[in-house]
Amino acid sequence: MWAYQKRLQYPVNIKKKDLRMAKLLVTQYGGSNGELAAALRYLNQRYTMPDNKGKALLTDIGTEELAHIEMISTMVYQLMKDATLEEIEAAGLDSHYAEHNKALYPTDANGVPFTVTYFATTGDPLADISEDMAAEQKARAVYENLIDLTDDPDVIGPLLWLRQREVVHYNRFKELFDYYQEKLNPKQQMIDNKMVSDNNNNVNNFMNEVENNFNPISDFLNNFTQKM
C-alpha cells in the first residue's frame, strides 16, 4: 500500500500564469514519456522481476514517479489557475475547457489522452529494464525540450531538477540491467564486453593511423606558412 506525505518532493511556486507553457508541460503528465506512464510502467513491471533487487528498485523508483506526477500537476495547475476565459481561448485551450474546465487531465502536448499503450510489460527482465532505461532517456530529452521553450525561472528550476532525476534513474536501471545480464545471460555479457574492447582497440588503431597520416600534411603546412 502507499502512504501520502503532504509535501512536494521539490518546491513548485509559479507566480506568472502561462497557458502556452501549461499546454506543453502537460505532456510530462499524460504523454508517452511522462511521469504517469513511468510510474505505471515500473509499478506494473515489478511483480515479475527475478529477484528482490529488481522488485525493490522498480517499487522505489515507481513510487518516486508518483511524486513527480504531483510536481508536474502542480506546475500545470499553477500556470492555468488565474487565466481568464479569453486567455484560455487565445491559447487554444478552449477545447480543454469545454471538456474539463480548469481541471487536470493527462494528455500529451497535442491534447491526445493518456493511454496504457505507452508502456509494455514482457515478463522478460532484460527487455523490461532496457525499456525503462530508454524511457528515462526519452523523459530527459523531453525535459530539455521544455526547458528550451520557457524563460520563467520558476518553471526552469523544477524542470532542471526533474531532468536530473531521469539521469539518476537511468543509471540505477543500467546497473540493474548489467547485473541481470551477467546473472541471466553470462555468455551475452562476455560477447558485449568483447565488442566494447574490440571497438576501443579499433578506435585506438584508427586514431594512430590518422595521426601517422596527418603528420606529413601538417609538416608540409608548417613549412608552407614559414615560407610565406
Partner: peptide, 23 residues
C-alpha cells in the same frame, strides 16, 4: 544534492549552462 536533484556527483549531468537555483 537536493538543489541539483542528484546526490551522486559522479552521475551529475548539467544541461547547457543552466545552474540549478540555490534553495
Amino acid at each position: 544534492g537536493y538543489d541539483k536533484g542528484n546526490l551522486f556527483a559522479n552521475l551529475y549531468q548539467p544541461y547547457k549552462n543552466y545552474q540549478p537555483p540555490t534553495l
